[in-house]
Design a protein around this nucleic acid. Structure first.
Length: 263
DNA sequence: AATCAGTGCAACCGCTTGGTT
DNA sequence: AAACCAAGCGGTTGCACTGAT
């Protein structure tokens, strides 16, 4: 059973030979890939277009960073995974030069085991059980101990080294965009209450950090998400598309009734 | 030296999404 | 609105490699 895209012709499968790689590189660097289904024929390869695309994206692209993941990359994967789950392509966007396949393999072969060894559920990132968690020698600390921001417009991951208050953290954000609103007047108790009354949209309500209260994760339908702690202690912020635009933030703040409490 | 089990990674498969006709 | 197609995505598989026996 072959791909629908290549069922008519005989195609080679399995590992790519250096000669095939060479042909694909030469073709794409000269002409670009254009329509992938036409690449094999034009490049003189007996592969299907899908296979060529995968080979180029995951292995031959010149901007790929090869080699093992460093500690910062590992931390980023864990932190973003905690918010997004198994959305490998989205996670990989925060790791320049890494592919979704690479991130997925690294997660399945390495990170998952580390988390389990620490007594953490790799799916939920919560403790597997309160009693059996053995102290681990790993250096990884959950992100609430080292907050960061992710700005996908620059694919930069910006560590925040202080445990600033919401007001302080907002000041930090405002250094990126001076028109952003100051947030220290937010009535978190009121937001929480309103959120709990309306189960019709896309707000997640999760525990994020390790103190006694709960944290609020807000998501709009464009995947813009921010996480706040109701005590106004800012812990984590993740943005899928850009830094918070003032209008986006205001629309969330102005319309908490559109939120949904998932958990 | 041979065999076996475990591991990591490249590649495949099937499904979804988005664009076009 | 429906059909078709290409691209993208995540789960899974297969195989090469390595270390233990």
């Amino acid at each position: 059973m072959g791909h629908h895209c290549c069922s008519k012709q005989k195609v080679k499968r399995g590992l790519w030979s250096p000669e095939e790689d060479e042909k694909l590189i030469r073709h794409i660097t000269t002409y670009g890939h254009g329509c992938w289904s036409s690449v094999p024929k034009l490049a003189g390869l007996q592969r299907c277009g899908k296979s060529c695309r995968l080979r180029w994206i995951n292995y031959l692209r010149p901007d790929l960073k090869r080699g093992s993941f460093n500690e910062q990359e590992e931390r980023t994967i864990i932190d973003v995974h905690r918010i997004l789950g198994n959305r490998w392509a989205q996670i990989a966007k925060h790791l320049p030069g890494r592919t979704d396949n690479e991130v997925k393999n690294f997660w399945n072969s390495c990170i998952k085991k580390k988390l389990i060894a620490q007594g953490l559920d790799p799916n939920t990132h919560n403790l597997l059980s309160s009693s059996s968690s053995s102290s681990s020698s790993s250096s990884y600390k959950p992100s609430y101990q080292q907050p960061f921001t992710v700005d996908t417009t620059t694919t930069a991951v910006v560590p925040i080294t202080t445990t600033a208050t919401l007001h302080d953290q907002t000041s930090l954000i405002n250094t990126h965009n001076s028109s952003l609103p100051i947030l220290n007047d937010i009535n978190w108790a009121s937001l929480e209450q309103q959120s709990q009354q309306h189960n019709n949209s896309s707000c997640l309500y999760n525990k994020v950090d390790d103190d006694d209260d709960d944290d609020l994760i807000l998501h709009d339908q464009h995947h813009l998400g921010t996480t706040f702690d109701p005590t106004c202690h800012f812990d984590f912020q993740f943005l899928d598309s850009a830094f918070i635009a003032p209008q986006s933030f205001n629309s969330i703040m102005d319309d908490p009734l559109a939120w949904d409490i998932v958990n």
